[in-house]
Design a protein around this nucleic acid. Sequence first.
DNA 1: AAACTCTATTTTGTATCCAAAATAATATTT
DNA 2: AAATATTATTTTGGATACAAAATAGAGTTT
Lengths: 227, 227
Amino acid sequence: MPVRPLADHQPIDHPSPQVAEIVSRLREEIISGDLAPGEALGQEHLASRFGVSRMPVREAIRHLESLGFVTVESNKRARVAAVSADDFLDIFDMRVAAETLAIRRAIPELTNARIDAAEAIQKQIESAPLGGFGDLNMRLHMTLYEACGRPRLLAHILMLGNAADRYLCMVKAGPTYREKSDREHYELLSACRARDADAAADVTARHIGEARDALVDYLREIPGSES
Amino acid sequence: MPVRPLADHQPIDHPSPQVAEIVSRLREEIISGDLAPGEALGQEHLASRFGVSRMPVREAIRHLESLGFVTVESNKRARVAAVSADDFLDIFDMRVAAETLAIRRAIPELTNARIDAAEAIQKQIESAPLGGFGDLNMRLHMTLYEACGRPRLLAHILMLGNAADRYLCMVKAGPTYREKSDREHYELLSACRARDADAAADVTARHIGEARDALVDYLREIPGSES
DNA sequence: AAACTCTATTTTGTATCCAAAATAATATTT
DNA sequence: AAATATTATTTTGGATACAAAATAGAGTTT
């Protein structure tokens, strides 16, 4: 049984707010597991469920496809995308590559104000309930990355974060992981203040690697979750 | 005036073949410069131009948006995405990150047959006319990357290749660049045969870096192309 | 009973239609 | 005459309608 997801209702970027709402809801249901991998998604059915016509539903499905949450074949119903160990490793490898690049490009552009803003988010993380951890964690890192001013890279990182949520929600962050994460965040902030790109990239890579290992360990303990 | 693009008619992946065709055509026109950056794209106009209704055009526009070729704002006409030096550097940085990762993950899975297939493509490049260079070049690298068996990463690399075409088509590959490219391809193939991931990643990074530098030099010579 | 074929139903893809928003054009005011 | 307000036109977003493809079901055959 899936644990309630960490990230809630991150706004989805789509020209139409109606479509964005549908994407957001379906994303939640896929991440939480209410919609199981492989489950068929009929447009008519979804349309009546959301009280709209098939048109915005179609757009939402296409958007979810580009995010990797559903797969679509010609003339067939969309299906919730499968989850797999390979896909999981794929995502985390890509995250390391993208986020170390982002922090390297951000460092030369970082202002002290921005680093302070990131530190403020870390303080929030420490005092906040566990529920919001995933969201706040992402916001901390994105705050730093945004300094690089590269929309393409930032969009890609957000996309991977979304994809990772599908797996991360399975394991609720334990106190050991949280402590390690906190320590690494401060390491990262120090590296940023020192404008040390290599150090910052190194912490970032370790940070993502540990999130991956935490889940791998978790999955090993409970092996009844192949797909 | 834009030079004819190198990559021609790479098939676009979309559930509907009709939409795929429209995406493909518009992509060509945007890459070639027939549709200038910032130009407005009316759905009705495009629909009559392609002899279809607005519906498949809408889907095509959304697909092009996810590829970064057009930008869409709510209730406004889609516009051909702007080109900029920053975007260009963004893309090439991301290519280095993604493609070095792909070759590293591919190396342990590489069969000799696959490396031979890549070498066959290199032979084709040497005897082929300049026109097909971009396409063949991409196919050579993808042949190697595909061994890693990670659909997400491969899709991302293809997307970046598409985005890069928008800039690469500006400069027709000169003989100096071609020679250097050929040499690097053989270096890459050697590294693959030796299953040396570090060396392969290193050549890949240099290879992409040189494509970038070639264009930067070209743009510096002809500075009348800001947007 | 299992496999196959043919038919009925469902579901998608595209076209057409209407309302709301944005753009362009015109008139009005200073 | 320039700037603003108002109206008309264009254009998008969404709903409805219909044809082609896919799925499901019944019937038939082996």
